[in-house]
Every structure is written in structure tokens, then in C-alpha cells.
Design a protein around this nucleic acid. Structure first.
Lengths: 216, 216
DNA sequence: GTGTATTTTTAGGCTTGTCTAAAAAAATTA
DNA sequence: TAATTTTTTTAGACAAGCCTAAAAATACAC
């Protein structure tokens, strides 16, 4: 259907579009660890295939058909991550790179059967929503712990940073999906957040609080 | 590790080497549906990487390290086929192309966990042996029905032709893995084989008898 | 054993996706 | 608004993997 490179560009643009309405060449280059000139080349190709809206120097956005492709790749990625964790017992910090390869397996029939096999999960191991076979999914209404007022509480439901180091740190602290936490205090000096969890008190940095997402 | 093209060449050479001691450029070209000149290019590359033994005009064979790579790809292919049939309920004639993509997922840890998850199956849905994580497997001691003497019996245990049309035909006739058959008669005119199976009598052509494998 | 046919290799080219270096456009700053 | 900086694009090159056409090596036939 589409080449591996095309799929990766579409996914990158989709993710960047979540925070920026129009996505720039340099943003894409940074996100794919490639050069701006390579991005320009690919943007012409994607525009020719009507997968993006692109005019020189104007930034890009996905067309409906480009967005459909991007969401389908994300669906595959998250379902394979779920499979790796729930069926093959990998840890949540181990699955990203494998899923990065598996998301390009082309068959939609396969991914639909996998979805069914696992009982139609709607969250991946990092708390991200899994699109259904029509590309529909709940947008994440989660907020970072850093946005919580003192003495409010919530359930850990997602992460903003998916890096292995961050996930391993959370695991070690017991800060995993589903855990109930309450904000006891925010230290004004450096915005360290003091949390109550399981009758324990622990402190997390502003950085961590920014990347740990809560449902209230 | 290795590129997709390299892996496909090594697999093709491995399979051809089963019947031919030294494999020719044209055989590889035919098997990969590519041109002889493209094969020559790739053979130089594989030889540079010490994956094959190759001298101009002399045919090729796999080195130990090339064979290891080839067997690992076959292991992955067959385990994914097993997964698709046993866990996702695909039919045996539907899985080849999907497994052809999935065999290139690189992680060995993943494939070992998949193997364990499925209970270490040692035969894929077509009866082919699945190499273990050390690359060891029983060589197939199966013989085609056409090699059976009249009134001898056996169990259907494999196929030589993996094409969807052939598999669908077998399915329709009930000639699936595990079924017990006995040879009642061979019609001398065209070598049609008359079989007894499940209290039914059925006839199969010489062609089919050549491609349906039996353990005695 | 010489001539013909086949197989294999070489030579040169194309596409995809990348790069560097330079040019052009846009954005920012004074 | 003019000068400078940043961003983006263009131009030209390269590796991988394929192609066609032609040359070289090998195999086959008589």
C-alpha cells in the first residue's frame, strides 16, 4: 500500500498535528531524526499522493485520507504493544521498538482478528487509546499531575514520555497505570510534587509530574 | 541486522539447497521472480558479508552463518503461521503472505516468547517442522502419497505445494493434516490414486498425490 | 574439437530515500 | 524598512536494489 518511509512520515505528522495546527518541515525532521531537505522531498511525494496538504514554505496538514492511514498505523502499533505486554509478558518499557516494526505489517484483517483475540482492548499498556477498526477512539482527556491542585486526587492513566528510562523509573516507584494518587503539596522552590499513594508519601520532580497523566 | 532483500535471498538459497547441492543464479532468479543480473549483484554483497560461498560462474552455497540466518527466518515464518491459524483462526491457505511479512520482525526475544506462548509447537499448519531457538529441527521424513504401494496406509502430515489453490482443494476434499488414508488402487492409465478415508473412497490425480505428504 | 546455445556477469541506468551545500523565502530584529 | 537570522527548498550526489542490453564464460551438440 504505502512504503515504510511514507507511513512513518504520516504518523509523525499526525502526532505533531495534535499540538500544532500546521506542522513545519523542521518539526518533522526533528521528530524523524532526519534532515529538512529529506523532509521536503518526501512532502512533495505525499502531496502528489493526496495524503497531505502542502504548499512550499507553508507547512503541512494531513488530508482525510492521510489521517486515516496515520490512525491505522497507530491502531496497529498500540494493539501490538498490548499483545506484547498482555500475551507475551513483556514489560511496558520493552515494547516500543518491536511495535515500531510490527505496525507496518499490512493486513487489516490480521489486525482486526488480533483486536478480537485480545477482547477489543481500548487502552494500550501506556494508557493511550486504541482506535477501533473504523479509526474511532476517545481523545485523551487526561491531564498531567503538575496541573492538579493541592489535595486533589486521581488515577494514573497514561504517560506523555514513552522512553524506556522514564517508564523504568515509574515502575520502580510503583507509579503504574491504575494506581490512585493524591497531591499533598507542591514545593514552591522547584515545583516538586509530594504525592500520597498506597499509604506512602513520595516526591516527584516537576519534570516527572509533567509527564505522568491522570484521570480525575 | 540484515536487510529484507538479503533475508529473502538467504531463505531462497536455503530452500533451493535442499534439492540442489550448489545453487545457480538462474534458480535464485526464478525463485525470487527477479532477473539474473540482480541476483549476481546481491550474491556479491552476500559473499562480502560471508553469508554465502560464491565464485563467479560457480554457483553458491550458504556459509554456516548464512544458514543460521536462513533457518531463523524459517523459524519465524512457521511460528507466525502457527499463531495465525491457532490463535487468530485463519485458514491454512490464508497465512502465507502475512507470515512472509512477519518473518522479518527482527527481535529474537519476541519470537522465543511467541514460541513459549504457543506451547513450543514443532509443526506449522502445513506440517513443516519449526526450528527451535537453536535452529535445530527434525528433517522431514515424509513421502508423497504417490510413493506409497497399493494397500499401504498412513497419516496426512504435510504438503509439498503451499499454494492457496492447492490447499483449498485439499480442504474441500477433507484431505487435511492428521487424516488417516489408505491407498486402494493406482489406475495405470494416468496414475490416478484411489484412496480410502473415513469410510469414503476418493480419487486424486498423480499431481495431487505428488504434493501430499504422508507419515507411515 | 569446433560451433551454437545457455548461463552468468558486466556496464550503465532508474527509483527510493537519504545526505551536504548552496540558494531562496520567510521571520525577526534593530 | 533594512539587515540579519532562521527556515525551507533546490541542486547534485550516494547506497540499495532493481532493470535492460551486451559481453564473457560455460555447457551442449554434432
Amino acid at each position: 500500500m504505502h512504503t515504510l518511509a511514507e507511513e512513518n512520515y504520516l504518523k509523525a505528522i499526525y502526532k505533531l498535528a495534535a499540538t500544532n495546527p500546521s506542522v513545519s518541515t523542521n518539526q518533522i525532521a526533528a521528530s524523524l531524526d532526519t534532515k529538512a531537505s529529506s523532509v521536503t522531498d518526501m512532502l512533495r511525494k505525499l502531496a502528489d499522493k493526496m495524503l497531505i496538504n502542502y504548499q512550499r514554505y507553508q507547512g503541512v496538514s494531513l488530508t482525510q485520507s492521510g489521517e486515516k492511514v496515520a490512525i491505522n498505523i497507530i491502531r496497529k502499533h498500540r494493539l501490538w504493544e498490548y499483545f506484547l505486554v498482555e500475551k507475551l509478558n513483556f514489560k511496558w518499557d520493552e515494547v516500543h521498538d518491536m511495535a515500531e516494526e510490527m505496525e507496518h505489517i499490512s493486513s487489516n484483517e490480521l489486525i482486526d482478528r488480533l483486536d478480537e483475540f485480545m477482547g477489543f482492548p481500548r487502552r494500550d499498556p501506556h494508557g493511550d487509546p486504541i482506535p477501533d477498526s473504523n479509526g474511532h477512539f476517545k481523545t485523551n482527556d487526561l491531564k498531567p499531575i503538575s496541573a492538579l491542585a493541592v489535595s486533589s486526587a486521581g488515577v494514573i492513566s497514561g504517560v506523555r514520555d514513552h522512553s524506556a528510562v522514564f517508564l523504568q523509573y515509574l515502575e520502580k516507584q510503583g507509579l503504574t497505570i491504575g494506581k490512585k494518587i493524591a497531591v499533598k503539596e507542591v514545593i514552591s522552590y522547584d515545583n516538586t510534587v509530594v504525592l500520597q499513594m498506597d499509604n506512602k508519601v513520595l516526591q516527584i520532580s516537576r519534570e516527572v509530574a509533567n509527564n505522568l497523566l491522570i484521570a480525575i
